[in-house]
Simulated assay, not measured.
Amino acid sequence: MGGNAGEAALHHTDLPGGRVEYRWAGPRLRDAALPVIVLLHEGLGSVALWKDFPDRLAEATGLPVLVYSRVGYGGSAPCALPRPLTYMHEEGERALPALIAALGIGRHILVGHSDGASIALIYAGAAREAVPERDGLLGVAALAPHVFCEEVSVTAIRAAGRAYAEGDLRSRLEKYHGSNIDCAFHGWCDSWLNPDFMKWNIEGYVDRIDVPVLVIQGEGDEYGTAAQVESIARRVPAGAGVLMLPDCGHSPHRDQPGATLDALAGFAAKLYR
């Protein structure tokens, strides 16, 4: 059920915050019985950086998968710097609902990685009257999510900042972000390294989530500890499944793709079948 060449083509839509690029994977001509999986990328991610994972996820689940680059990333519109420290709140409560509405998506499942996972949790716990689009939300799968800031995260991001300034990280990322490279990197890095970001916390949103949640984290995650997972599992009223993967760092879909795809396929199947 993987996507064909036409489905892999990039498209664009204009949102209040700027133009975003997106593509579809999997069964594009969906019927009303099939929910859409929406993929939300990490703090340095984009459509292209997911590589073939959207197609493999569509194959594993039999569902259409939407993948997009947030404003400031990939081929989407640039963002203004510095980003506000509430940038993930703005994505979850404004930009993501606007995208879902613009593309006419009804029932949906969110799969987010790192920053994208946090954005998904914010969306899922947002006030329903403020985000009516989440009436169609069936569940959230959070890969390496953050619900509060930890010193281990700051340490890892500080090291990324050195690699960007002194090493080859900038050139490696530039092929995915083009002229957005500084928006993508500094919008993420500078926010997390702001001393005030240590107070960042979205556990109150998690307390209000009323759909099932699956959390997947690598045991060797260099950007967060198991305390992130434990907080989510303890707080989600509708229940949260947890999968801790051995021999896995911050990117379960890259480090352990088979186990991650199996878990996501099982989670999705329980939500709509």
Rank of each mutant, 00 (worst) to 15 (best):
I109V: 15
L169R: 13
A226Y: 00
H186V: 02
P246T: 12
G18M: 13
L193R: 12
L15M: 07
G167R: 09
L57W: 09
G26F: 09
E230D: 14
D247W: 01
A98R: 08
M88I: 10
G239N: 11
A144R: 09
H146T: 10
P212S: 05
H253G: 08
R162F: 12
G220K: 10
E222H: 05
V215L: 04
A5V: 10
E21L: 00
R273I: 06
E203A: 12
G167C: 06
A58F: 12
M244D: 00
A184C: 13
T260L: 03
H146S: 13
A269D: 12
E174G: 01
S171I: 02
M88H: 01
A95E: 15
C183G: 01
E7C: 06
R28G: 00
N4T: 08
H177P: 00
G104R: 08
A227F: 04
R107C: 03
P212Q: 11
V229R: 08
W200H: 02
P132H: 07
L63T: 04
R234L: 12
I119M: 02
A124F: 01
W50L: 04
E42K: 00
E166T: 05
K199C: 00
V131D: 02
E91V: 03
D52H: 10
R162K: 13
T61Y: 13
D168M: 05
S153T: 15
L85C: 10
I109N: 04
R94Q: 08
T61I: 11
R107M: 05
E219G: 01
A25L: 03
D255A: 11
A102T: 14
D196R: 15
Y272E: 04
R128G: 14
R158V: 02
L138P: 12
I109F: 05
E219L: 08
R158Q: 14
L121W: 11
M88A: 11
S46C: 15
G187Q: 08
I209G: 07
R19S: 15
Y176M: 06
M198G: 06
S179P: 05
P132L: 08
G75H: 09
A58S: 11
H146W: 12
A95W: 06
I105Y: 09
S69V: 02
H41N: 08
Q217I: 02
H113D: 02
A25E: 07
G43T: 11
E59I: 00
I209V: 15
N180I: 05
C189I: 01
G106I: 01
P237L: 15
T225Q: 06
A156E: 06
G62S: 09
